[in-house]
Each structure stands twice: as C-alpha cells, then as structure tokens.
Design a protein around this nucleic acid. Structure first.
Lengths: 167, 167
DNA sequence: ATAATAAAAGACAATTAAATCCTTTATTAT
DNA sequence: ATAATAAAGGATTTAATTGTCTTTTATTAT
C-alpha cells in the first residue's frame, strides 16, 4: 500500500475560524501612530517624511504613505512637498482627536449602526445586543474624544506612553 | 479632439479609505444570530437545519453551515446527522454566553492584546490608548457575559428583541 | 439492505483589506 | 533653468475574509 500524493495536502488545509477582527483596522492603527508621531516631532519643530514615520511606528513605508494622504486630505495633519518638506502639525490641527482619525480611515461603523447588521435596529425595535452596545459605545466615544492627538503626543514625549517597542 | 478611452476609467478608480471594521466580523454576526435562533426553536422542541437557519437570520446558507460546524465543534450547540436531524441546544449548552461565541469565531483579540498592536503593551509600558481601552473592554466584557445565549433567545421569543427585519 | 436526509469536510471562487511599486506634481536649492 | 527632493496619485499584487459548491459520512425510515 502506497502513501497517496494527497497525503501532505491535509496538513496545508485551511483552518476556517480564528479570524482576528480588532477594535481598529490595521490602517487605522498606523494612522493613529502616524499622527501622534508627527505631533511629537512638530512639537520640536521638525517636519517628517513618510519613510521616517514608517520606521518609527513600525509600519510599512508605502502603506503608511497612502494613509498619510488620507490624513492630509482630511486636514488632520499638514504636508509640504519638495526639499525640506514633509508632514507636520500645528495649532490649526490641535483640535483633532482619535475619533477624527478613526472616522477618516475606518468610517463611523464602530460608533454607528447595528452591531449585528440589522438595517432598522433602534430603541423601539432593538436587536438582542442593542442596549448593551449603547453602553460600550459610550465608553468608546469617551476613549476617542477624551484627549486631542496633540495631548497624546505630549504623553509620548514625556515618556509616559510609547508608539513602538523599546529596544 | 476626441475623448480618450481612459475617460471612464477615472470613475472606476478605487477609493482607498472608507473601510468598515465593526465590532464583530460578519462570520461572528451570523454565529450570534444562529445560536440565538437555534435556541428559540429548541425551546419549542424543534431541531433546525442550516437552510432554515440561514433563511431566518438573513445569512447565506452555505456560509452559515460552515459557521455552524465551528459552533458545533466548540459544543456551543449540538447537532445530529440524518433524517430528523439538525442543530439544537439543551441544558448542556445553557451556560454559554456571547463571549464564547465570539471567541469561537473571532478569537479573543477584541478582549486581549494591545489595540494598537504593540507586542509588549502593559500597565507599566502602555501605548497611548492603554488605560482607556481597559475601560472599554470592561464594558465589552459585560456586554458579552451579562446574559446566556438561552436568555437572549427568550427575549426574542417574547418579542422584546429580534434577529431579522420585520415585514 | 436500501434510499433518503442532513451535517461534516474539503476544494474552490469572489470580494475586501493590506501592502507595494511606479509615475506625476510641487517645491526648493543650486 | 535645472537637478534633487518629497508628497500625491494610480495601478497592481498579495493576503485574508467571505461565500459557494461538491463529496463524504452518519443516521433513520422504509
């Protein structure tokens, strides 16, 4: 009796299950870290390029550059082309919070709409999770609006929090 | 002067941005609704097939069947093959909550790990969101453990909540 | 025993998100 | 003006998630 050619295929078979949906998309995580990093540098009067940002937040440079385009278009940070250019933030950007960043990249589905996907879920017509989700969203809203991106950067500068692994 | 062939391509150009990460993956949403639906029927002593489940929770049948396999393997519901078979839930399944369902399909990344992806994020070494995320997760944990799947089904039977659109 | 039923399992296709690469545009220093 | 720099824009690739289809296995009624 011979071992069939399909023997090893079983090992490679795709395990369905074990996804990993998290609070934020990967793109939003990079966006949050990028904006905070830009602020840490702008508070010391340095403009930064996509390459430097990617390196400091441990994110792929090209993908980070795409995300920076969206953040710039949304006016959450500023950018200047050419030599001595780069991304920066100043007082005109000081009002923005995590919520603005998250909405720019992921949209508002973390805050709005039924968590089970029912089109007409409401107080009067709730899904099984409706009222508990309202409470969770209250906390999410607080998390995303409590501090400005600038304030979050100050904490990083102080060494109280960090954007990447320590070496 | 002629309109170039690429004219309409611009319209089709991919907008980067506007993703939609939500609290739960689509698979988990179907899983939650499936288990609650199975319970509503089991409480009236009916076993149900994947086809009926898919129809009643407004989910694709074949995909729902895959999810049911995982739920069955995790012993969150029971199943019996063959004529008069189907999915069901009884007192041996009465202890399970939303948290068990979510963990089975999505894993525990909604509750565990750094929301910004830092490998060694902790109280002593926190990311900028760490302490706020802890508070959000307390609420998420409450939402997912407050009631058993059976209790959620009772609310649906009573007409207090629902799993699909009303007609 | 046999046919019918329904879940389990596996392979595959489509869609969306993540990531990369190449070209164009704006700016600045020489 | 020209070369160098850096963001903006576009097209494409890769990977993960979502969704479908077909075959196999277990069970039950005839």
């Amino acid at each position: 009796m011979y071992v069939t050619s399909g023997f090893f295929l079983g090992i490679l078979s795709l395990y369905f299950g074990l996804n990993s949906p998290q609070m934020f998309s990967q793109a939003t995580k990079y966006a949050i870290k990028s904006v905070i990093y830009i602020w840490t540098q702008s508070l010391e009067d340095r403009k930064v390029g996509a390459k430097e940002i990617g390196a400091n937040i441990e994110a792929p440079e090209a993908f980070t550059a795409k995300i920076l385009q969206l953040l710039t278009k949304a006016k959450i940070v500023g950018s200047i082309k050419g030599p001595n250019g780069g991304f920066f933030a100043d007082e005109s950007h000081a009002k923005y919070t995590l919520k603005d960043v998250v909405k720019t990249i992921d949209g508002d589905q973390l805050f709005a709409g039924c968590s089970l996907g029912l089109p007409r879920c409401s107080e009067k017509n709730p899904c099984p999770l409706h009222f508990e989700v309202v409470k969770v969203r209250t906390e999410i809203d607080h998390m995303l609006t409590a501090k400005s991106m600038k304030q979050l950067a100050v904490e990083v500068i102080k060494g109280n929090t960090r954007l990447a692994e320590l070496v």
